[in-house]
Design a protein around this nucleic acid. Structure first.
Length: 381
RNA sequence: GGUGGGGUAGCGAAGUGGCCAACCGCAUCAGACUGUAAAUCUGACCUCUAUGAGUUCGAUGGUUCGAAUCCAUCCCCCACCA
């Protein structure tokens, strides 16, 4: 096993900036490009760890803010850290709470040293800055800790975006000197909104800091139109070192993943497969559709023909639709399982396409089924 | 048989003379979800040739400029008494 933090580039696509890589963490290797399921509250909603293991899932997310609110660090520490607590033996990446600065807009107050949050659970005031976030992530014992950043929404004025990167840089500098859990890697985050010069300034600032083994593109898909998302990603990737893992935070539509990989991104996470599953939307190779739709009432076919996931091996759409309709927990579990299989299948095919030099065709295919001009859902599936 | 209460859109339930095509909830249908305040949210939900028109509030008849709302008769449901 290679040293923790080693990032091997196993293959580079001559026709694009895509690469196949392997990042070594304290809990094993992570093969890239990788999709990391989001397990905000010490569980990937609706899924058990063994089901993720069946998918050869090598890394999960957890969330600093949520886990600090509940169950709190006393519990996690007493129970031996996040891995032991949720019984996950592979890698964990913890988000720093920076995204909550964005999503909990009216429950927070910015200060130069960090953010004052009001708990979304009971309103308790709490403070989180780079030191607090790093301390919590150290207790969680994650394999990759994210820098505490500010993720401004879009639209946002250039002036505000600039203030946000100033804070993000200041906090990144503080975090870089904080103690870490044994073997814990640390990723810096590039913000800057839709402004190329700010992205560049932020990237330069982060790259000048010691103590970061990987870099993330943050603040993407926070309200901007589709046309602005990919150019922003592409220009930011080019600012990041080639020999380090590059993580595009939160962006997870398939066409966006395919395009970003071609631009040189290695890591992704997104709530989409699990959240949409709970809302009855399922992913297939040909596009996504709602199993809850009335037209599936008598449909004997599986969610996706040819899929080998546990849901598709045994159950009809009619049954899954019934479960979702009567709000049975199994319904959400089955759609979540299917979607996670679909995502992992997608990533597997994406890697194969890189290895085979057929990424262009794969991108075209993905964009046809999922791109910005494709329908959001396909009733004829 | 007697006494009392009641019948409102798929269901439940407001409304007791004009602001009522009728509050609200559920169910249903559709849409949205991108580092999860999300098993959530938004919209539609009598009919139609739909920024307008038509037909509704157990049934029929009546009072009134105007009725889901008042009166009469009838039908049905519930509770208690015989």
């Amino acid at each position: 096993m290679a040293t923790t933090g080693t990032f091997e580039i196993l293959h580079e696509d001559p026709a694009s900036k895509a690469r196949l890589g392997r990042l070594w963490t304290a809990h094993g290797p992570v093969d890239t490009p990788v999709f990391m399921p989001v397990g905000t509250q010490a569980t990937v909603k609706a899924l058990a760890p063994w089901e993720l293991e069946d998918l050869n899932c090598q890394i999960l997310l957890g969330n600093t803010y949520h886990l600090n609110v509940r169950p709190g660090m006393e519990v996690i520490e007493k129970l031996g850290g996040l891995h032991r607590f949720e019984d996950w033996h592979n890698a964990i990446l913890t988000d720093s709470g920076g995204y909550q600065v964005f999503s909990l807009t009216n429950l927070r107050k910015m200060t130069p040293d960090g953010v004052e949050f009001q708990s979304h659970v009971d309103g308790t005031k709490m403070f989180m800055g780079p030191r607090e976030s790093m301390a919590i992530q150290r207790i969680l014992g994650s394999d990759i800790a994210m820098a505490f950043d500010e993720c401004p929404p879009c639209p946002c004025t250039k002036k505000y975006a600039e203030e946000a990167i100033d804070r993000t840089l200041r906090w990144a500098a503080i975090a870089s000197g904080e103690p870490r859990a044994e073997g814990q890697l640390r990723f810096g985050i590039v913000q800057g909104g839709v402004y190329p010069d700010l992205r560049q300034k932020c990237a330069e600032g982060i790259l000048a800091l010691p103590g970061y083994e990987g870099y993330a593109i943050g603040g993407v898909s926070v309200g901007e139109p589709d046309e602005l998302i990919m150019p922003g990603v592409q220009m930011t990737v080019d600012l990041l070192p080639r020999d380090r893992p590059r993580y595009l935070m939160g962006v997870g539509q398939w066409w966006q993943i395919a395009e970003s990989v071609a631009a040189g991104v290695d890591m992704f996470d997104c709530v989409m497969p699990t959240r949409l599953a709970r809302h009855g939307m399922v992913f297939t190779r040909r596009g996504r559709y709602s199993v809850k739709a009335a037209r599936h009432r008598l449909d004997d076919r599986p969610i996706e023909e040819g899929c080998t996931c546990p849901a598709c091996r045994r159950f009809s759409r009619a049954y899954v639709r019934h479960l979702l309709n009567v709000n049975e927990i199994l319904g959400a579990r089955l759609t979540a399982l299917h979607n996670m299989y679909a995502y992992f299948d997608f990533i597997r095919r994406l890697r194969t396409a890189i290895a085979d030099g057929t990424l262009d065709a794969f991108r075209a295919e993905t964009t046809a089924a999922y791109g910005p001009s494709a329908p959001k859902s396909f009733p004829d599936l």
